[in-house]
Design a protein around this nucleic acid. Sequence first.
DNA 1: TATTTTTTGAGAAAAATTTCACAAGAATAA
DNA 2: TTATTCTTGTGAAATTTTTCTCAAAAAATA
Lengths: 195, 195
Amino acid sequence: MGVYIQVLEGLLLQEQQVISSEKLAEQCEVNPSQIRKDLAYFGEFGVRGVGYYVSDLLKAIKYFLGIDRNWNCILVGVGNLGRALLRHQQLAQKGFQIQMAFDCDPFKIGERVAGHEVICTRRLKEKAQQMQIDIGLISTPPERAQRAANHMMQAGIKGIVNFAPTRINVSQDVIVDYVDFSNHLISMAFRLSHP
Amino acid sequence: MGVYIQVLEGLLLQEQQVISSEKLAEQCEVNPSQIRKDLAYFGEFGVRGVGYYVSDLLKAIKYFLGIDRNWNCILVGVGNLGRALLRHQQLAQKGFQIQMAFDCDPFKIGERVAGHEVICTRRLKEKAQQMQIDIGLISTPPERAQRAANHMMQAGIKGIVNFAPTRINVSQDVIVDYVDFSNHLISMAFRLSHP
DNA sequence: TATTTTTTGAGAAAAATTTCACAAGAATAA
DNA sequence: TTATTCTTGTGAAATTTTTCTCAAAAAATA
Ligand SMILES: NC(=O)c1ccc[n+]([C@@H]2O[C@H](COP(=O)([O-])OP(=O)(O)OC[C@H]3O[C@@H](n4cnc5c(N)ncnc54)[C@H](O)[C@@H]3O)[C@@H](O)[C@H]2O)c1
Ligand SMILES: NC(=O)c1ccc[n+]([C@@H]2O[C@H](COP(=O)([O-])OP(=O)(O)OC[C@H]3O[C@@H](n4cnc5c(N)ncnc54)[C@H](O)[C@@H]3O)[C@@H](O)[C@H]2O)c1
């Protein structure tokens, strides 16, 4: 589904107003029926004989996915990856604004990164509860990921995206999503080895 | 499959020598049959009544996936994300060593990042051909990703991992893998919106 | 040694996903 | 107006993935 958004945003920039499932499928590298099935799932957005109106379709997809609004995020672990994420303006443009950044390293606390003052992790609960935080991003070393998750749960955060390559245990009302780049490299290694 | 490695590596550290599909499944948050099917696909590694020998299983999985060797990588685009990747030692530990880093910004060329001298992208072909490079990582802005890919293809690179949120066109003997964090955030937004 | 327990490997069944095929709606051309 | 072309939405078919089940192998116990 993310691909559709990516390609449709591109079409919008090129000021293309209408696209057929066939053309969209080509750009997304999927089957046209796949696209029609996916889109039909949440409404009738196409016009027979014409195709889909790019702008309307984008709005519909975003509404369906729940990204027609802003989501408040915090980040724990201001290291190499954490800094990159804080400086990555596109996240905010897509509606995922990192509101605060935490670290436990006294040398990092107080430092400013991309307009954020790095705050001590011990103050996470207090700080995060002042604002309604929806999503927590973990970019600590793997052995600290569980601790970061615990802090987030104590602050009532219900969605955690974990960039550290380790599983974490959470109460069952919390949703965890794991991001692991190395999986992509592994997949690449596999595909290159089995031509 | 990446999850299995992650969890098995953890078990190895804890010096646990044997694990059953049931216990492994618990930690990986998947179904035990799933694990047995997956593992049986490339051999008989389990021992009935006992389970799987962690170390042997890891070796077998790594061999099967083609990550029992080193893969030479280069990176194009030494910005926020590029720097994070260059400084991320775990990649090299996993057998994906970033051998060279390229950028087109004259202010960045010559700079040293994590032991790498940033090289002008125009010299990519010449430099990359001196060493057998397997995989190219793209961390340029999206509008420059195609150009980066073209440079890589000219140097004979057959695997491209694209961190820029845009599709790229490649000749059919080149494998592309797309990494897009925002997909994870979108998925999280969706799951939080539909409880 | 015989019996019970544990746990895999794999065939069968179930579920989910993807693709096909085409009727029907909308635009265009005759 | 009528025929033709284009393209969606959807039921049916095909394929893939996941889960269930259990015989059989290995270890533990009696
Ligand atoms: N650097 C990358 O490109 C990259 C890529 C993929 C995954 N990752 C993963 O992301 C994580 C971070 O990687 P990195 O390269 O930024 O590491 P890093 O060591 O540069 O940064 C980790 C940061 O977390 C902080 N920290 C440690 N414990 C903490 C705690 N309990 N609370 C708050 N902050 C804490 C440290 O002070 C440090 O600033 C790692 O798990 C790594 O495997 C990194
Ligand atoms: N920063 C993040 O955390 C993050 C997260 C996810 C995805 N991304 C994606 O990764 C890419 C890079 O993000 P960033 O934040 O590092 O951006 P950035 O602007 O900091 O870095 C981009 C770098 O690419 C270089 N560059 C531009 N054109 C080039 C070319 N033709 N050849 C070589 N180098 C070139 C620029 O000089 C710059 O150094 C973007 O596409 C972004 O969407 C970034």
